[in-house]
Amino acid sequence: MMSYFKLFALAAIAFLLAGCPKNTIPDPDPTDTTYPGDAGDATTSGADGGMYGDGEFMDDPSAGELTMVIYFDFDSSEVRAADQDIVARHAMQLGGGGKVRLEGHADERGSREYNIGLGERRAQAVRQMLLIQGVSADQISTVSFGEERPVGFGSTEADYAQNRRVEFKYSN
């Protein structure tokens, strides 16, 4: 039992160290340092920096962009409390129409077809939340890629944490 707790702790630390990957749309161009609030004439660029010196402005987390991927704990298909707002915002988005494909993924451990099942279970957990919040069933499809489409290609806890995920893919 103890080793499992250690595993979780390691996973959490490794995940924090690796940093959360950017998964918002539109994908911010890392070379573009335009401040979103500006009309566009106050741009700075290059290594000489602007009035604030070297650096770039950060995305405003409340700026209205949808987060397109959420992550899951080891052996779990429960949407984390912190991610329930993200799902709710997708439900709002879908209230205005459109279709979403929920792509479920798993980490590489264990058997491949069983991992297809685990990925599907995660996609279904998100689907159920969307349905409860009024999204129509025909707006949602699910697919599970199991461990077949990893984001992290290594075999560390940080890779595994990145790979246990559901991605939202919109089409009109």
Binding site: E113, E120, Q124
Partner: peptide, 10 residues
């Protein structure tokens, strides 16, 4: 074969 259907019950 394994089938999951719309509700994903394998």
């Amino acid at each position: 074969v394994t089938l999951g259907g719309v509700d994903g019950n394998l």
